[in-house]
Design a binder for these strands. Structure first.
Lengths: 235, 235
DNA sequence: GAAAATAATATGTCTGCACATAATATTCCT
DNA sequence: AGGAATATTATGTGCAGACATATTATTTTC
């Protein structure tokens, strides 16, 4: 039951990779106990701490379930975690080798509409900055953004020059957030049809994002992507 | 510059949390260098290895950028990684406290249509198992699934009883995969309208998933969620 | 026989030390 | 001055040992 590591260096990453392969190839079957740290350390010829580091990494990624005394077992249904990174639109577009352009469409101070106020836990009487803008890739509409920003939480936003920098880029730089939520859904383009240059009934991918600084809401953005857009990720 | 840890235990997680707070509150500003490991270890009154473990974790999460000799700096634009976990539909439905039901609609052996063959790098002459099924939550249609399985890669699938177990659950249990891709898009319900009990023109969220065992394709699934469905995640 | 105390076990983590590695700064030579 | 060799520095990682902690198994007690 040896022969897995010819002359390999015993780094914790190497051990993690070997263990990962054993899980994927079902040398260790889902739900089963794997050898304990001491045994693996003996097998790999390294210290227990090294094995520990490797197994912790796999547990953090959701492939192993570890409990003291109970031992380490392979997750039954590997809670597949896809790490979806949310780049700035600019970076996303430029990463594809396309030209990025940002075009502000609207900027006004207004009270929030009911649904927005509700989701941000606001009374509705607050002063908010309402911004609509279009992001283009190689000159073609790529994403239309409808954003509400809570001025009380981010007072500096009123003085920001949003004619060249998108509000998202400004917020990322200037305003940290403690947590947030995101929702994907498919909707008819509706009011976004104009900016996106598509039919109002075309299905478009929409992302609703809300961020918070502790209990204070920062912003509420609804993004509408062009109909052809697909958001891809690796497993 | 002290007073951050009153009588706290110096575990690497505690240190990570303190550092995370400093990053979020901009005590350490984006792009700036943070104190080196030895200095932090002195501040927290612990060993350098403990600080190292904490900083490694933050670097893995994308908040810090570490380079030998150059030191550790706060990431400019924290490449926000949302961890989207992809549960089995059954678990997802049951987690919401709803009743889950699976209903097989079609099962046939057939050659793959052009687009499917192309995405799976097949010639088109292969034997494939084609399965369509509906997943229900509290009796209402929740997701319609159109799946093609490469029989050569997973021969055992032909003998599987897919009348009660969904092909996804069977594959998760019986067939490991090395990698895969996933794509979100908004489409008109079209042929999925019947099973989902909606209009063919209704926009629905669709996920295309393809998994591989090394170079051999395993399966190609197109999932169509009910129009009201929103896929939510935390930031 | 059931409940409580005790032991055993596997993981969790810290420490102090050593050496490796990458990147930068400095010195030295021509 | 220019370039090569060398030193310095911060992180990366390993090791052995120790103790902490959670959980299960066993034994004792009533």
């Amino acid at each position: 039951m040896h022969g897995d590591l010819p002359g390999s260096p015993t780094t914790w990453q190497a051990i993690r990779d070997v263990m990962m392969r054993r899980i994927r190839t079902r040398a260790y079957t889902p739900g089963s106990l794997i050898p304990n740290e001491a045994e693996l350390a003996a097998e790999f010829g390294c210290a227990r701490a090294t094995v520990n580091r490797a197994l912790q990494d796999l547990a953090a990624s959701g492939f192993l379930d570890r409990r003291r005394k109970a031992g380490t077992r392979v997750m039954e249904a590997p809670r597949r975690k896809a790490t979806l990174d949310i780049p700035l639109i600019r970076n996303e577009v430029e990463a594809r080798g396309q030209d990025y352009e940002y075009r502000p469409l609207l900027r006004e101070i207004a009270p929030p509409p009911g649904p927005v106020a509700a989701r941000l836990h606001l009374s509705g009487g607050e002063t908010m900055l309402h911004v609509q803008s279009l992001h283009l890739a190689d000159g073609a509409p790529h994403m239309f953004e409808d954003r509400w920003i809570v001025v009380d939480t981010v007072p500096a936003i009123t003085g920001a020059d949003l004619t060249r920098l998108s509000p998202n880029e400004w917020l990322v730089r200037e305003s940290p957030y403690t947590h947030g939520t995101m929702e994907f859904q498919a909707v008819a383009a509706g009011a976004a049809a104009g900016p996106l240059a598509c039919a109002p009934t075309d299905p478009v991918l929409s992302i609703l994002r809300i961020t918070w600084m502790h209990e204070a809401a920062i912003t509420h953005v609804q993004e509408y992507f062009t109909p052809a857009f697909r958001m891809g990720l690796e497993l």
